[in-house]
């Protein structure tokens, strides 16, 4: 039994296992806070593999992944990066938000992500063959609209793709109750609110409310916070800065969790 709580949305666990059995790399896409990272953690625990997580950013160089020379009292020595460690010892290398990394950085993954499964390190002249337990997982959020960023098709087409979305209402409700300890009634309300906000779609708010935000709201409520206040601070304010959107979201919350009308 794994420690990390994860409730499957559909067939992702089976797919992950199948991909793992055949040494195929996996690409996970989905909006923020829908459970991508949690899924990887749960899978790592289930398969008993260590996870090397790298959060990508636009200054991430290939050396940050592969490794570099460092100095000690005896002179220079080679230090493996997280990717190289995973390749040598086996484990899951998880590159979060891979789209943020510069395109030239992600190219080092190519030889690992196809049938070759090798990592050439040009600085030391070494070519490492991947450990049988090595697995490559990358994730990104396709919701960002950006011209300069985006995955090269040549990178994209080396992965098995898993598409995540916010969990279905009943799944999300269970997740909320488990994660934040609120009762079913409040969980149902939060899920209702989320369903309504997600309907607004992309023209008014950048991205809809995530399961993570709902859990935050739930946690505040279990701590004894007034549900209305909890929702305002965790959900409404995080979603938008536009006056009119804020106003209407506030109204929605006040309809679900009453703030006395006669104030």
């Amino acid at each position: 039994m794994s420690k990390t709580y994860y409730l499957p949305q559909s067939n992702e666990v089976e797919l992950f296992k199948a991909a793992e059995g055949m040494n195929l790399p996996i690409l996970i896409k989905g909006p923020t806070g829908c459970g991508k990272t949690r899924f990887i953690e749960a899978m790592g625990e289930m398969l008993g593999r260590e996870i090397y997580t790298v959060v990508c950013h636009d200054d991430l160089s290939a050396a940050d992944l592969v490794g570099r020379h460092l100095i000690d009292e005896n002179g220079t020595y080679w230090q493996d990066g997280p990717l190289t460690k995973a390749v040598r010892n086996g484990g899951i290398c998880y590159l979060d938000e891979i789209i943020e990394a510069r395109k030239d950085t992600t190219v080092v993954l190519h030889s690992l992500a196809d049938y070759r499964r090798v990592l050439p390190i040009d600085r030391t002249g070494e070519v490492i063959e991947a450990h049988p337990d090595f697995m490559l997982v990358v994730s990104y959020n396709p919701g960002y609209q950006n011209v300069l960023k985006g995955m090269k098709p040549s990178t994209k087409q080396r992965f098995i793709s898993l598409s995540f979305d916010y969990p279905k209402a009943d799944v999300e409700k269970k997740v909320l109750m488990q994660e934040s300890g609120i009762d079913e009634k409040i969980a149902q309300k939060l899920v209702d609110i989320a369903g309504e906000i997600r309907r607004l779609g992309d023209c008014d708010i950048q991205e809809a409310v995530s399961t993570r935000l709902l859990i935050y709201a739930g946690k505040l409520i279990t701590k004894g916070f007034d549900p209305y206040q909890a929702c305002i601070h965790s959900i409404v304010e995080s979603l938008s800065d536009e006056e009119d959107v804020l106003e209407v979201l506030e109204k929605l919350i006040s309809l679900h969790f009453t703030k006395s009308l006669n104030v």
Binding site: E196, I197, R199, L200, G201, D204, D244, V245, E247, V248, L249, K251, L252
Partner: peptide, 14 residues
């Protein structure tokens, strides 16, 4: 304006 947003929030036809 807010009413319109509210209408969409409750699933009204955009």
């Amino acid at each position: 304006k807010t009413l319109k947003l509210f209408y969409h929030l409750l699933g009204g036809d955009k």
